[in-house]
Simulated assay, not measured.
Amino acid sequence: MSRATREAYRDVLLPLLLRRPELMCLDSDTGLFDAAYAEAAGDQYLNVGIAEHNLMGIAAGMAASGRVPFVNTMAAFATSRALEAIKIDIAYNQLPVRIMATHGGLAAGHLGPTHQALEDLAVMRVLPGMTVVVPADAAATEAFVEQSTDVPGPLYVRLGRKPTPALPPAPPPVIGQAQTLRRGGDVVLVSCGPYPVLACLAAADVLAGEGVAATVLNMHTLRPFDTQTLTAAARPASLVVTLEEHWRGGGLGGAVAEALSEAAPTRVLRLGMPDQFVDTVGNQEHLVDHYGLTAERVVGTVRTALGTAAPERPGRENVTTRPSHP
């Protein structure tokens, strides 16, 4: 069943507010919360309008006074326009502010580069003490929102905009612990977020049919980073491939390369958005496909790296690869 991660967050937050009087919901006129929601939340909901820098400052003040604010804005605005307030007011003081950032990655593709967030994970994961989480589906979002009340210090959660498919059944995700969705000893596929994780699972199925066994890790938490699970998977493998809806620099691929270079040196190939602003108009699904954040690209990357070719099998259409994107 497809469901939007931002809607899953909204729906699970209200019962939390009603159970926990110290929690607050601070909005920036996102349109996610209607009048009925505001009425049900009462004094625990406040819409400050389109003023993201002020939003973070207000949240910091509330957190310093014993409240735990969930602040709602778009990822592009949280990690650029409001970054100074996040860095100095929130992270520097290690305050328990939960930054719930919608329209992550290419989710606002139709609005262009001003609203797309392809740098947010790189920006947020370098802030000391900041927990950074990227749910891959609605169920994971619900789990992370519930768990977030016990996370010390600040938290950044990247959410989407439109419904995305649910992942196959797996043990419930836990903040700070990578999810192993599939096990194999030849290659490791690491991803985060709905479309990349689904693409890696599909790629693993194709590779299995070609005799290549892949481990698939849903690295939903970029900080704190689960180096132990990553290195355990990487040690027997000859190749690690990362896929993310983010510029290649500084995001998940960077975190994986940093961790493995110190703990278990392995060849890492990072797949993501090219080093340019998006110059194509389209919705998220179109842009994900256009820029090759797909199972086909993962399979082609593994084939090339391992020196294998697509098998010719009667009655079976081979997976085609797209032109290589940097």
Rank of each mutant, 00 (worst) to 15 (best):
M1G: 03
T5A: 13
T5I: 06
R6E: 07
A8K: 03
D11L: 14
V12D: 03
L17E: 06
L18S: 00
R20E: 14
P21S: 12
L26W: 02
D27G: 12
D27N: 08
G31W: 11
F33Y: 13
D34T: 07
A35H: 09
A36I: 11
A38C: 09
E39W: 09
D43F: 07
Y45V: 03
L46Y: 10
N47P: 02
E52N: 07
E52M: 02
E52G: 01
L55P: 00
M56P: 01
G57T: 12
I58Y: 01
A59G: 07
A59N: 06
A60S: 15
G61M: 14
G61Y: 09
A64P: 04
V71P: 01
T73W: 01
M74W: 05
A76F: 03
F77C: 05
S80R: 11
L83I: 15
A85K: 01
I86M: 15
N93M: 12
Q94W: 06
P96A: 04
V97C: 03
M100W: 02
A101V: 13
T102W: 00
L106Y: 00
A107S: 15
L111I: 13
G112H: 07
A117D: 06
L121P: 03
L121E: 04
V123M: 14
R125Y: 14
R125P: 07
L127M: 14
L127H: 05
T131F: 10
V134A: 13
D137S: 10
A140K: 02
E142L: 00
F144A: 04
E146P: 03
E146G: 00
Q147S: 09
T149L: 15
V151E: 13
V151K: 07
P152K: 07
G153C: 08
P154I: 06
L155T: 08
R158P: 06
R161G: 05
K162M: 13
P163C: 04
T164H: 07
P168V: 15
P169G: 09
P171S: 12
P172Y: 06
I175E: 11
A178H: 13
A178M: 14
R182A: 15
G184M: 09
Y195S: 12
Y195L: 10
P196W: 04
A199F: 10
L207Y: 05
V212E: 00
V212N: 00
T215S: 15
T215H: 00
N218R: 09
R223F: 05
P224Y: 02
Q228E: 15
T229S: 14
T229F: 09
T231Y: 01
A232W: 02
A232L: 13
A233E: 11
T242G: 07
E244V: 05
H246F: 04
R248H: 08
G250R: 07
G251C: 10
G254H: 04
A255P: 03
V256F: 05
S261W: 00
S261P: 05
A263V: 11
A263G: 02
R270P: 04
P274C: 10
V278A: 10
T280I: 14
V281I: 04
G282C: 09
L287F: 08
H290S: 07
T294C: 08
T294Q: 04
V299L: 05
G300C: 07
T308V: 11
A310Y: 07
G315Y: 12
E317I: 10
E317K: 15
N318L: 14
T321F: 14
R322K: 15
R322M: 05
H325C: 12
H325P: 01
